[in-house]
Design a protein around this nucleic acid. Structure first.
Lengths: 338, 338
DNA sequence: GTTAACGGTGCAACCGGTTGTACAACCGCG
DNA sequence: CGCGGTTGTACAACCGGTTGCACCGTTAAC
């Protein structure tokens, strides 16, 4: 059994064990070309012997990096937890960073208290970069990050993009996605469309609607657009409201797959069949889409790939790259609800 | 408008601006009694002037602490995301630490890749302490933390407690909770009890069952105990299995409120009324418990308080305190399902 | 045989803070 | 007037790494 180590070995001990100087030991472990192969072997052996791992604090001070990237979450965790969008994003980020020596950590900043604490650590430069996964409302923290010049990537659109020249942005082409969904409705011959979308103040929602409109025009009248939350319960309720109005419609464009699931339930309860009577198209292509009955035709957002992209941009910015805006393409996934 | 600051001011600049040495500046900002009030004022003014914030890297190296605490999550995020238990826990931790200068960050370590990266940063001593919120299966990371001597708090029981002398542990008294639930059944005069619990390998489940048994004895026969997942779907399915057996029972003890919700749905579908025909008692007292129809009688776990406790213990251990085990009390919440 | 070139290593400075200790200035006291 | 005791400040070392540069011993070229 290995004994608990209370005090970690330092580079000096490794150097002593290998019979070289600290600098040589350092270079040997960092594989510098200036050190002979033989010396490297000896130092590496010594390092392994004493179980040496370079101390993050000393290293961070010397190289000016902590190798920790903060994934900033400004929504309450419970909300985050109920939305599969985020977990896809996060997996993408983690996946990509696992190739590097950087470690992503999730930083919750929903309350004012939390934001202040986060701000403090940003100012102290505890993190090399920040990836904000829910920036759409903006926040005073973004202002702080801008002032500090911390490399920052926004996942998702920010209203009006006031920071475009300072921050990088990654998001999927929502207008294009709306386009695809609407086109599918049109091709199917649907003429009287209803839309059940997410919150009206969300830029993604606005863009998707623009995409719908570009294709459908007056087939999607203003009166038929409902803004609500992202959950199936929200979709269910919204659909009930629409049914109560007793208007005629033959297609429903949904802001998320979960909304679509609720919509389908409500339609079925009202005796309407999907897709025979009404076509339904979702958005996101989450797991739930394939499990719907009937399986949901939807617009796929490449969330995992967005995570990859965000992570890579963060790494580039740490190395000094300029901010970028990166728009990902969407894709129509054909299933049975159309 | 403040201009973006590319290079942060250092203590040396503050000292120069205030006309004192670096050491005096440092002591003044840390409110050392050896510095005159007048000098402190001057230094503080200078610091404010240049917007000085002590650099985390330099400070960490000097004081030997990063002031970052890792909240370790070894389950897949999606699972974590669906269980309200965690978000309560986390809120408790964050709340408590917001009083200190420590920052909690969430560290995902579900895949092997992620665990390796986490391990690396543990070895580098990137974090002052670790709070593991889902330790019950154990993991090789715990072994690493033990060897490194990193202050560690486990939230929840660990099978067999092999690390009791090295790690602190916080959990609620599950046996007591089981006791309370069973006692309520008994007081109500229920004699033929069924239990629908979480996974059998979970120590909490074992303890709760022990609590049930201590009160009910043969009123809860082995054959009536079903192990399943924590979700309402699991509860629903389990109840259907039980109904198919056509045994007589008048009470159901559930491993979680979500299980209870599923159980109630299944009972209603079978034409059984709660609580007239069958009493149901949950566990956790999550939000869902109060929203059930009928409102669920359940055993409250003080999750938020456990978070507070875990955070405080972590801080104490950083200061050198010995590991502690802390068991929190549960409480029966009387509602209408009994 | 001298010298230039070069590969390998160590010294020392540096990153940005904190802290033990020396020292100067001032006080009151005998 | 000289002394010990306070008070306030600065110097320098330290935390644990990285890195510019000087230096050493070879070898090769003239």
């Amino acid at each position: 059994m290995t004994q608990p180590v209370r005090t970690a070995p330092t580079l000096a001990e490794v150097a002593a064990a290998a019979g070289v100087s600290r600098s040589t030991a350092s270079r040997a472990l960092n594989d510098s070309p200036r050190i002979s192969e033989e010396t490297k072997k000896r130092v590496r052996a010594a390092a392994k012997e004493v179980n040496f791992v370079p101390n993050a604090r000393g290293r961070a001070l010397a190289v000016g990096r902590t190798e920790i990237i903060a994934v900033l979450v400004t929504e309450p965790l419970s909300e985050l937890f109920s939305d599969p969008t985020y977990s896809e994003f996060l997996s993408g980020i983690t996946e990509e960073l696992s190739e590097s020596s950087y470690l992503p950590v999730i930083l919750q900043a929903s309350s004012t208290h939390e934001r202040n604490r986060a701000r403090e650590h940003f100012e102290r430069r505890s993190f090399d970069a920040v990836i904000d996964v829910s920036p759409y409302k903006g926040s005073e923290l973004l202002e702080v990050l801008r002032e500090l010049g911390v490399p920052t990537v926004l996942c998702g659109q920010l209203e009006g993009h006031p920071y475009r020249d300072v921050f990088s942005t990654v998001y999927s082409d929502d207008e294009e996605g709306g386009h695809f969904a609407a086109l599918a409705m049109k091709d199917r011959g649907r003429k009287d469309i209803v839309a059940v979308l997410g919150p009206q103040d969300n830029p993604a929602v606005v863009d998707r609607l623009r995409g719908y409109r570009a294709v459908l025009g007056e087939d999607l009248p203003d009166a038929n657009v409902i803004y609500t939350g992202w959950n199936s319960g929200d979709g269910y309720q919204a659909m009930h409201q629409i049914l109560a109005r007793e208007i005629t419609f033959d297609g429903v464009l949904c802001g998320s797959d979960r909304i679509a699931a609720g919509v389908i339930t409500a339609l079925n309860e009202a005796g309407l069949s999907v897709p025979a009577d009404v076509s339904v198209v979702g958005f996101d292509d989450h797991e739930i889409a394939a499990r719907c009955v009937p399986a949901l035709t939807t617009v796929r957002q490449p969330l995992r790939e967005e995570g990859h992209m965000a992570a890579n941009i963060a790494l580039d910015m740490i190395k000094g790259a300029e901010p970028t805006t990166s728009v990902m393409h969407t894709q129509l996934i054909q299933r049975d609800s159309l």
